[in-house]
Amino acid sequence: MITYPFEYKRASSVAEAVSMLAEGGKALSGGHSLIPSMKLRLNMPDALVDVGRIPELKGISMDGDELVIGAGSTHADIADSQLVKEKLSLFAEGAAHIGDPAVRSRGTIGGSLAHADPSADWPALVLAANATIVVTGPNGERSIPSTDFFTGLFSTALNDDELITKIRVPVSAGSKSTYQKFAQPASRYALVGCAIVKQADGQVSVAFSGVSDAPFRDTDVEKNLNSGQEAGPVGKGQSIMSDNFASEKYRVHLASVYLQRALEAVA
């Protein structure tokens, strides 16, 4: 398998990457979503801007009450990070469930978010954690709340000439969290992924991957739970996906089961 021809450019800084993207092309981070689709010739960018070696995109640190994760951090970087394990175990737990070891070693959080696969794991994690996606474009930096970031199937609020640079995640003491995933047996993508963050005061945020065209926060479920009710039906108002492995009906059922399992895990 071979991709269509394209021009490979390597950026050494965010500024350079943004100026290269302005000329067209797609950002290449770990490439674990992009390159497979290009090999199948489902995707044919004219140019790839390799952002894999930009030092500014690396690194995981605390900034006040926020954990700041460089967009170029690999899933393995995050799964193995002592800091993430301490401050936001949800991310370490979730990252450890992505793909397989080789994928985790190359795939990055920024690349995964930009790709916005409806069944990827990161979207549910960042949504439940109320993260902010920081992007840089020709007009400088802007911050997009994760709840505004995912706009549809493989669609995000990211413009073609923008690059995700970091993910800022609020960290609060006493919170509990979990990611419960029912994997599609062949691809190991989420048929249902349920991420929950429960604050010290008992308020929960609940997000799903794999269930709908786009990852989503289930605000109905949250409202019910946060007012002391039963969770109620999952995915109300969402268009539920169906495929060879899970019909709409079964997917909704799985989502309810996994929600319950997640709630038990943070009880």
């Binding site: 490979y8 290449l28 490439g31 674990h32 090999k39 390799d50 080789a102 070693s105 190359r106």
Partner: peptide
Amino acid sequence: GVAVKSCTLLAAQ
């Protein structure tokens, strides 16, 4: 030193 899938990586990378 880290295992990767060489079919999903450009030589350029």
